[in-house]
Design a protein around this nucleic acid. Structure first.
Lengths: 339, 339
DNA sequence: TATTGGCACTCAGAGAGTCCGAGTGCTAAA
DNA sequence: TTTAGCACTCGGACTCTCTGAGTGCCAATA
């Protein structure tokens, strides 16, 4: 068990290091914080912390720097979620009013989050795995083409042009539209495939063919729903913290540009405490992000969790501030989507 | 007038500098290129080029580096568009097959371009300023809501949920849908406003109100068409060329993240020669891009130019290769969209 | 047992000094 | 107009030294 004062020392080291970007030594520590003990005592504590791998000295005669493990202990046990100040609250309120559709709301949200935190912000589009079909529409668009529109209960709308290969019969399309809605309106996306299986039974060969083309496209649309999407903002903030990324920021940029990587990472993250989830440095299991930390939280749409949002920045980030910003924005987004 | 040999020297300087990233001196120049004259002669030529502000010496005892003006002369008069090699052609062909809708095609295109050039690639979504309405659809979506779908002749589809405020009358919506299509199908987007002006005349007050809400939304949709959009790929390539951007890449990242800036810049660019348009360094008139060059070309949809695509990279980029890649990709995209 | 003052030791980074060689401009001759 | 020759420049690389913040350890102290 690590004694309380040593933990206080760790907290002080993390705070000073985040503020100064310099390894912090025992002497400056006792100067800036009122520990009531001498530098020598602090040194003993630091030796203990180093033994526990919570801090680390870049070289013999330098101060100490928190390790990933040190940051982890800090956020789990030592940091308080600091409430946003009035200006920040105000910024959130102002940012959100007047957003009309989903795209715009999420776009605003991600920009807001990157401005509040000065980090790279990301917002995941609502995952539709648990969503259900609200409505499907077929609209004749040209001689041999039909526009298919799929609306889900999460409010997402997708459209796709289906090439039929033959001139279309408007009446039949209308009939098919009705039939499809009768079958799958209200059904979970995962059930759609089973429900439309026998839709063509009893039709003439020609209609069967058209139907199967449309059904094939519909199933593709449903499947495409699982292909999740992330929007980003504030990428340039990375470059401003360049010195925090030894080597180059290039691998970090690569990682966040590659949606697949990002989706996998945040997919693995489950809310830990305070409703927020963190990956610190090498916890990310992705080489390029060894010096980066991710803070995410889930946001909800009408009561059920549907997706995540968060920020990415250097391991040496201000966790307290970022955590509260992510939480606050997630809360406001949930509220906005509630209507 | 600058003598031919001096221009050859300029070409050699640009080529060597791009290849080596080192200021090039008279001696290495005569070694690598068969000028048939001595280094001293080359020095005289270089003095001339320096007088014309085409090259510039970072300091007294260093070689020379092309200026923005030097690059400009190089691309305008000295560089040949080098045809793509077979592997590159193959890559383009492979990349394009199987693209279904506009989103996916443009997404593939921008990734392809960034891979071919190792630069940041961008593709502008088709501008709809000259587009016309092909079809408008109104679909009852919930008790008081209607889904409006607007399809233009450029193939772009937009949808928007309209909140009516009152329970909807399906018959009336169907009637309105017909009326709207009769009025504006085929009309240029710019003419829509005038055409729908009197649509509500003769209706009952209640219907007038619903109609005006829908028309208001329709006009917003039409206007939103002018809000252009750009997609990017290969941002991490910037970080790999970091040494080419004195100071930091941060302002460059900011510029390309800010769609407004980017749209303004490429909006100003008109095709010069070979169907391609360039801005070199400070020609960009945007401070953050002082060390960046932009290469863009237009691509067409069924015969009329509709948008641009291109790459952004350091001033010291391989112009020949990038120009031909941009041109080739624009050509292939035009072909793909032709169907 | 925990804390403290003292002390010898370490080492990255800053600063000063030196050297090298690629590159220059100029001049006089071909 | 071109060339060889020459004196000159100066950034960058290299070495060396010095400094001071920081350390670990030990013996004395509360």
């Amino acid at each position: 068990m690590i004694p309380d004062r040593s933990l206080e020392v760790l907290r002080a080291i993390v705070q000073d290091y985040i503020a100064s970007k310099e390894p912090v030594g025992s002497k400056s520590l006792v100067e800036r914080h009122a520990f009531g003990v001498s530098a020598a005592t602090i040194r003993n504590d630091m030796a203990l912390l180093e033994e526990e791998q919570l801090i680390h000295a870049p070289h013999t005669s330098a101060g100490r720097v928190p390790t990933d493990k040190g940051y982890r202990l800090f956020v789990d046990r030592l940091s308080e979620v600091k409430p946003l100040n009035t200006a920040e609250r105000q910024a959130i309120e102002n940012f959100m009013v007047g957003s009309a559709d989903l795209d715009e709301t999420l776009g605003r949200t991600v920009r807001l989050l990157s401005q509040l935190t000065n980090q790279v912000a990301m917002v995941q589009y609502p995952t539709l795995g648990k969503a259900s079909v609200r409505h499907i529409e077929l609209i004749p668009a040209a001689d041999t083409r039909v526009l298919m529109v799929l609306i889900t209960n999460s409010g997402r709308i997708q459209q796709h042009v289906v090439e039929l290969g033959v001139n279309l019969d408007e009446n039949f399309i209308a009939e098919l539209r009705q039939k499809l809605n009768a079958l799958i309106a209200g059904a979970a996306l995962t059930d759609v495939k089973a429900k439309v299986k026998n839709i063509a039974s009893g039709m003439t060969p020609e209609y069967t063919k058209i139907t199967s083309v449309i059904v094939k496209n519909l199933l593709e649309q449903v499947d495409a729903n699982r292909q999740e999407k992330i929007i980003l903002s504030g990428t340039s903030n990375l470059a401003k913290r360049e010195e925090d990324f030894p080597g180059s920021i290039s691998p970090v940029l690569e990682a966040i540009e590659e949606q697949v990587v990002l989706l996998k990472l945040i997919g693995e993250m489950q809310a830990e405490q305070h409703g927020v989830s963190l990956r610190i440095g090498r916890e990310n299991s992705f080489e390029g992000l060894a010096n980066a930390s991710i803070v995410v939280s889930g946001y909800e749409n009408q009561g059920s969790e549907i997706a995540k949002l968060g920020v990415i920045g250097p391991t040496r980030m201000d966790y307290s501030t970022n955590i509260s910003a992510v939480l606050a924005v997630a809360r406001y987004l949930t509220k906005t989507l509630g209507n």
